[in-house]
């Protein structure tokens, strides 16, 4: 086999992982801020609606944020599909026994593609349900705005939706618990001196995002009538 010619950075497996990491970073940052902002649902309906109104009123910011998020998820999913296919081609014949214990891989790392697919389905459904859901109106401090709070309360009283929501957010937490740490590795920012800390940060990140998001439907379903 002749020596392979050097290729453009983003066509290499490592370049693809850089794209995975950078786009993953965008979404990891987004879900944390989204979770934190939505915690207002535990505070008051008016505050929650005013927060939503402030975001949609800032058109340039919204345009930039939505564009970056859409581009990021498209690139993230495309790279994920390409890398997963390459990875499967690299070992078509499975082992009779898979590595276990210290020499085995974590469940989160082995199932990133399945988690990602479900999370993508969730994101699409979630946007349909809320962003493009029923438009109620309310007035807060004399300003007419969308009553998103009312829609959220309605949806979070449907047991089927809450169960699906809980499942997907647990998956998101699981996805982040492996993904956030991998961002550092893929970007080349994980040295031996910080590897242990990065693992903890990654686990904590997944836990905090999932716990924060989950507190919202659970609170609404059980305590807000």
């Amino acid at each position: 086999m002749a020596a392979a010619p050097a290729r453009p950075f983003f066509l290499s497996t490592i370049g693809k992982k850089y794209l995975m990491a950078l786009t993953g970073l965008v979404w990891a940052g987004f879900v944390l801020s989204h979770m934190a902002g939505n915690m207002l649902i535990l505070v008051s309906a008016n505050l929650y609606n005013a927060y939503g109104h402030a975001i949609v009123s800032n058109k340039p910011l919204l345009f930039v944020a939505e564009t970056v998020l859409i581009l990021s998820i498209v690139v993230h999913v495309t790279m994920a599909i390409m890398l997963t296919l390459e990875n499967r081609q690299a070992r078509p014949q499975k082992y009779a026994m898979t590595p276990n214990g210290a020499k085995g891989s974590s469940l989160a790392s082995r199932t990133m593609a399945i988690q990602g697919s479900l999370i993508l389905a969730f994101v699409i459904l979630h946007i349909t349900t809320f962003k493009y859901g029923t438009y109620y109106e309310t007035t807060v401090d004399g300003v007419v705005m969308r009553d998103l709070h009312r829609l959220v309360i309605e949806v979070f009283h449907q047991p089927g939706y809450v169960a699906w929501y809980v499942l997907c957010l647990l998956l998101l937490g699981f996805h982040l618990s492996h993904g956030v740490g991998s961002i550092f590795q893929s970007l080349g920012l994980r040295g031996d001196n910080v590897a242990h800390k990065i693992k903890k940060v990654s686990l904590a990140y997944g836990f905090i995002v999932a716990a924060g998001f989950l507190s919202q439907p659970i609170y609404v379903f059980f305590f807000n009538s």
Binding site: M1, A6, T13, I14, E86, R91, S105, S109
Partner: peptide, 16 residues
């Protein structure tokens, strides 16, 4: 890296 890719090895998933 180009040779590594051309040989058909997979990518890193940071499993360790």
């Amino acid at each position: 890296v180009a040779q590594m890719d051309a040989e058909g090895f997979g990518a890193c998933t940071s499993t360790g």
